[in-house]
Amino acid sequence: MARLPSLRGLQAFEAVARAGNLGSAAEQLRITPSAVSHRVRGLEEELGLQLLQRTHNGLRLTDAGRRYRAGVEDAFATLARATNDLLGPDLSRPLAVSLSSSIGVRWLMPRFDRFRTAHPEIEIAILSSNRSADLTSGEADLALRYGPGEWAGSLRGDLVLSCTVSPLCAPSVMEKIKGLTPAEALARSTLIRLSWDDWDAWLEAAGAGHVEPARKLTFPDFSIGVVAAVHGQGIVLGYSGFADAEIAAGTLVQPFELTVPVKNAYYVVYLEERFADPRVRAFRDWVVAEGRCQSA
C-alpha cells in the first residue's frame, strides 16, 4: 500500500513553504499559526524527517523540505486539475487577478471600467502585491507580471505591453540640468530607483553606464517613485503609458530625448487548464486587446 501522510499536514507544509512564514500560511488556511505549526510537526513525525528549520529569523526549508516541496506542489496541482476537469470551473466566486500596484494603479485602473462595461456579469477580485501570486496553488486565476516572458510548467503567458523607458523629472529639476549630457546630469542628480527597474539598460544606451549618480533613492513601487519625482526629489525612469497624467499636466517632463525599448514586458499569465473558464478567456482577451491599442 502506498505511504500517504496526513493531507492536512501536507496542506500546512505547502502553505508555509510557499508563504515563508506561519502567519501568512495560517491566513491562507484560515487556522491559527499554532495549528499550522502543529500540523507541520505532525507531518515531520510521520516522515521521520525535518522539513523546516526554525531559526531566530523565522523558518527555512531543509534540503529534504526543498525536495519534498516540489513533489507536494505538483501533487496539489494535479488534484486541482482533476477536480476542475470533473466539476468544471467554479463560477460562484470572483475571478482573482494578481498584479503589482505599479501596473494596477498606473495602467489597469484607468481602463478597468471598459472591462466592467463589456462584462458586467464577471466579478473581479484584484490582488495587489509586489509578490507574485502562486497560480499553481489557486491563489489567483490570472496575473499581470513583468518579466522576460519565460514561464515554467503549465503556465502560459500572453504579451500585454512591450515597454519603452525614458527618464522623467520635475520642471524644476530639468532647469538645473538643461544643456548637460545624460552622464553630466546624472552625476549631479538624485537617481530614483525601483527594486525591479531598467535604469541599467537606459544608462548603457545613453553612454552613461559608468556614471555614479550624486545620490540614490530606492522605492519598491513605481507610483511612489513618480510622486517623489513630481516633488523634485530626483529623476525617475518612466515607462510608456505609466505616467501619462503627470506628463499631460506638466508636472513631469522628459529631460533627454533618448527612449529605449527594454527586453522585459508585461504579460497576462495563467494555467493552461484555467483557460476553460470563460471568465479567464474574457479577461485575457480584453487585457491583451487593451495592450495592443496602446501599442498601435
Rank of each mutant, 00 (worst) to 15 (best):
P171M: 12
N57K: 03
G65L: 14
G149A: 06
R106V: 00
V165G: 01
T136V: 03
L22A: 05
E212Q: 13
G241T: 10
R279D: 14
R292A: 15
L47R: 00
A243S: 10
G157Y: 04
I192V: 04
Y239W: 15
R279F: 15
W151G: 13
F222K: 01
R106A: 07
L252I: 11
F115M: 09
R60H: 14
L51V: 08
L49F: 04
A214Y: 15
P33S: 03
Q11W: 04
K176M: 07
R279G: 11
S195A: 03
E150W: 12
G179Q: 02
G147S: 12
L252Y: 15
D85P: 09
A133V: 00
G58M: 09
T55S: 11
A15L: 01
R39W: 09
T83N: 01
L47P: 02
G23V: 14
V40S: 01
A152Y: 13
R39D: 05
R145W: 09
A187F: 13
S101A: 10
L108V: 05
E27Y: 02
A208N: 01
R8F: 06
G207E: 11
T218L: 15
Q254N: 03
I103T: 07
L79K: 14
P167L: 03
L180A: 11
F242S: 02
S129Q: 01
S240A: 07
L168Q: 04
I103V: 09
N21E: 14
A12R: 11
C293F: 13
S195C: 04
R274T: 02
A208W: 06
F115T: 00
P261Q: 12
P120A: 05
L7S: 08
C163V: 09
Y270N: 02
Y266C: 02
S162W: 06
